[in-house]
């Protein structure tokens, strides 16, 4: 039980997928203009990431390892992820057209969100069990959602600030992301892993 808690804490805060591992920066910068869209993106990514972590674990252990096809790992994972993203896209389009419009190009881009593939591969690398993989995926996604929403809140405020011209737009967002990343260093050492 405690192990699971450690995994959750570790992935969400200490080894945050965005601010500490620097994965998934494209949606982090792209969909953080509005809190609502960030929340939607967070949920969509959570769904995809958790599912992908579980599915890729299944593909790895049930298909690739027994058949000795580990060299196909990246290829098959990308296939699985792409499939799940397509499915999510169709579902969101039906369920919430507003969110679908707000997410725009970034929704299909979850496919290429390196966090998704990264987490799937890390799971295999660290030899997680199925439950651990699921939790690892969920924790990473929760951490992703957390910082995405916090960052979106900050950027909504940044948009109203009198930022000097050279820093307007992306530069100030990167500076802020850097400071946020530094703040997350405070969690260092919380769990030893």
């Amino acid at each position: 039980m405690q192990d699971y808690l450690v995994i959750l804490l570790s992935t969400a805060l200490v080894n945050n997928v965005v601010l500490v591992k620097f994965l998934g920066l494209c949606p982090f910068m792209g969909v953080s203009r509005k809190t609502d869209a960030a929340l939607g993106m967070g949920f969509a990514t959570t769904f995809v990431l958790t599912l992908a972590a579980a599915a890729s674990w299944c593909v790895e252990t049930l298909l690739l390892v027994p058949l000795g096809l580990e060299f196909l790992r990246i290829l098959s994972f990308i296939l699985v992820i792409a499939g799940i993203v397509q499915f999510t896209e169709a579902a969101i389009r039906k369920i919430s057209p507003t969110l679908y419009r707000a997410l725009g190009i970034y929704l299909p881009l979850i496919t290429t969100n390196c966090a998704v593939l990264g987490v799937a591969l890390l799971n295999i690398q660290q030899g997680h069990s199925f439950a651990e993989s699921l939790l690892y995926g969920f924790g990473s996604a929760a951490g992703f959602t957390l910082v995405l929403v916090i960052f979106a809140g900050l950027r909504e405020r940044l948009a109203r600030l009198d930022v000097p011209a050279p820093f307007q737009g992306a530069p100030i967002a990167f500076v802020t992301a850097g400071l946020l990343s530094m703040a997350f260093m405070g969690f260092a050492g919380l769990v030893s892993q």
Partner: peptide, 12 residues
């Protein structure tokens, strides 16, 4: 390998 990928693709 081919069969596996095909099966995956077909399933998805």
């Amino acid at each position: 390998a081919v069969a596996t990928m095909s099966a995956l693709g077909l399933g998805l």
